[in-house]
Design a protein around this nucleic acid. Sequence first.
DNA 1: GCGTGATTACTCGGATACAAGATGTCCGAGTTTGAGCGG
DNA 2: CCGCTCAAACTCGGACATCTTGTATCCGAGTAATCACGC
Lengths: 132, 132
Amino acid sequence: MKFSKATNYALHTMLYLLAFAPDKPVGVQQLADAHRVSPTYLSKILTKLVKAGLIESASGANGGYRLKGKKEEISMLDIIHAVEGTASLFECCDGEDDRCLIRREMRNAENAMEKHLHDTKMIELAAALPIR
Amino acid sequence: MKFSKATNYALHTMLYLLAFAPDKPVGVQQLADAHRVSPTYLSKILTKLVKAGLIESASGANGGYRLKGKKEEISMLDIIHAVEGTASLFECCDGEDDRCLIRREMRNAENAMEKHLHDTKMIELAAALPIR
DNA sequence: GCGTGATTACTCGGATACAAGATGTCCGAGTTTGAGCGG
DNA sequence: CCGCTCAAACTCGGACATCTTGTATCCGAGTAATCACGC
């Protein structure tokens, strides 16, 4: 039960884009250098963000990844869901048996965390960065 | 990022003990039958609960596992921590760098979930079970 | 100056390799209960 | 009826085996900008 490194990379990359390049596309190489990750691996992760509609990719020379859509609304939860999936963190009791009290409480706890993540917008973090 | 099945088994077993056998030791075989798990595997999980001080084991004939200590105070978080460990769910930025805003917010979200799990006591769930 | 083609700098996606952790099994060793047996 | 012994029923812990998932790399294919060249 851990958040994957992929989620970590995705969050930091999104923060980077918001803070340093809100409009221009940035190459995978540059993003990878900024966080000490392999470019090809980071590319795989960013593909998930593209599919989720958070960013878009530009092919060819001077291509790269660029923010897409309403930047103010991007929450931490959006990014986490894009990378980790939206499935519940806790599964038990064969499917959708709502009589399982343990499952119900686990879902409630999970929702508490997700609410916090949903209320935290990436653009606020970008604005609070000490050095830009 | 998923809770392990081991956590699932641990939670259900604890609920079972609280509801059906608050005092008597129950054999691993019986507990395993109740949740369709291999007895030896369940034994491995319960060993963690023993080390955490939530239950105690009785060797020999008529032995088994029994609740230990103040039953009213056992929370879901206690069990989860016993099985999954107490480490933070999110790690990044080499160690304890508190300047990382992403890490800070992830910790906050995590704490929100843990608070909910801490406030949910197992004995309440046992009392709310429909069929006993 | 202008169009055309080649080059270059990129991303995309699949296939693959590797590592770690979760899951599950097996077995030998130790421990307690209780039954059997002899006195 | 008492005490001893022994078998049975347990748990404990370590050592495996297996399976899934996360992590990471490689490579061929496609695409867009730019440069070079010839007209």
